[in-house]
Amino acid sequence: MESRTQVKSARTPTSVGVGFDYTFPAIRGVQAGREFYVSMCPLRLIPRIFLFDEDELGPDVRAQRVLNKGRLPALARYILDNPDNYVFSALTASVDGELHFEGLGGDGPGMRIGQIRIPMAARFLINDGQHRRAAIEVALRENPDLGDETIAVVFFHDSGLSRCQQMFADLNRHAVRPSRSIGLLYDHRDDLAGLTRLLALKSSVFKGHVEMESNTLSGRSRRLFTLSAIYSGTQALLQGLELDKKTASTLAQAYWEAVDLTIPEWRMVREREMHAPDVRREYIHSHSLALHALGRVGNMLLRESADPVSWHPRLERLEEVDWTRSNPDWDGRAILGGRVSKSHQNLALTTNYLCLRLGLHLSPEQQHVEDAFCQQGDA
């Protein structure tokens, strides 16, 4: 018996199949006429009993996607860095073997609550949660004490490859990744996310004009910015600067207020002299690309400045930038096919343009990108 989980492995042969059994406390349910069981499993058992399809098999004979090992370090680090408040949702698994449910009673709730016995020879295949399973295995290597904790598992009987593939398709059919903005809004671990929320809610530049949930703005939205765009710009601004939280917050607010002074349309929207949809349609300075580029430029200014305030005069040159979409300087640099592009290449080219307007020296890498763009234009 596991000391903290009521999950055990039988040590003697039982009447259920041949050999030893896993015994799990469980609740029995029914979906689409098929029984399934919800249980708890100690983390130490997860790597031992739950298997992946072999990576070398073709997708047509697997029941799940190939494991993306690049995701594992971050997932494992999440568990290890937050041992008191990490959250993992349930795993879903198919069992290629007999599942025997023993209820606590013959009627009422006792018919649904009890335990399931599964032969150790059975094969457990994860339908949903393979990356969580692998991250748990990685985390256990560093902190074995996590093995006594539990995760919810939903067990289905394995009805063959086609059924398992259909389960994978159904489980992921309507899965929607939350927008980055709402993820930042609800993230209380990331100090920069907290700083960004503070800017969005308190700063005179952004207050009342930030879309807090979506990464995009509808044509009629009265907002000028998205929370994710402010985050990207502020992250770029503070990149590599060793600042405490208070200093970083003060600096970020001062920088965006200084940028605001050079872009009259932002003020005009706040004072209701212009409408946000019109500004977004005619200018690019409230777009996430522009905020990100402005953050990068600010970072370069701060690194080149001899003191904390000497960057202000140089930033005033932004007043000379023509931010209108019709400005031919943006063609191929910030705008492709009539639309603002957020690609890495366009971000680099937009940053270069602003750097040159402010008299900042381009790094060798920036100069290489700029030269390639200019040569393309001359061709």
Score class of each variant (00 low, 15 high):
Gly108Phe: 08
Val154Met: 01
Tyr353Gln: 08
Ser181Leu: 12
Leu318Asn: 08
Tyr353Ala: 06
Arg281Asn: 11
Gln165Phe: 07
Val38Cys: 01
Leu291Ile: 14
Arg62Gly: 13
Glu365Asp: 13
Asn127Thr: 12
Met212His: 03
Tyr22Cys: 08
Leu192Glu: 00
Gln64His: 15
Val369Ser: 14
Arg272Cys: 04
Leu80Cys: 05
Ala193Arg: 01
Ala200Arg: 02
Gly114Thr: 01
Pro13Thr: 07
Arg317Thr: 07
Leu360Asn: 08
Ser9Asn: 02
Gln31Thr: 07
Arg112Gln: 05
Pro264Tyr: 06
Asn172Ser: 10
Gln366Ala: 13
Arg223Pro: 00
His368Gln: 15
Ser288Ile: 11
Ser94Met: 08
Leu354Tyr: 08
Glu56Pro: 03
Phe36His: 14
Leu347Gly: 11
Leu146Thr: 09
Ser39Ala: 15
Met268Ser: 09
Gly208Ile: 08
Leu358Tyr: 10
Leu227Asp: 03
Ile230Arg: 01
Pro144Ala: 12
Gly240Met: 06
Ser310Asp: 09
Gln235Phe: 02
Arg77Pro: 05
Gln6Glu: 10
Pro109Asn: 07
Arg11Tyr: 03
Gly233Asp: 11
Asn215Arg: 01
Asp21Gly: 00
Phe52Pro: 05
Lys202Asn: 10
Glu304Ile: 06
Glu370His: 15
Leu67Phe: 09
Gly103Gln: 06
Gly332His: 09
Gly103Asp: 06
Gln31Met: 09
Ile335Trp: 11
His312Gln: 13
Asn143Tyr: 05
Pro59Ile: 07
Leu238Thr: 00
Arg280Thr: 14
Ile284Cys: 06
Asn215Leu: 01
Ser39Trp: 00
Ile49Gly: 02
Pro73Thr: 14
Asn82Cys: 02
Asn85Asp: 11
Phe36Val: 06
Arg71Tyr: 08
Asp53Ser: 12
Arg189Cys: 05
Glu265Phe: 06
Ser363Trp: 03
Ser179Trp: 11
Trp330Arg: 06
Gly359Asp: 10
Ser3Pro: 01
Leu349His: 07
Arg296Cys: 14
Thr324Val: 03
Ser3Met: 05
Ile113Ala: 03
Glu304Ser: 15
Ala236Trp: 02
Ser181Gln: 11
His188Glu: 07
Gly17Met: 04
Arg112Ala: 07
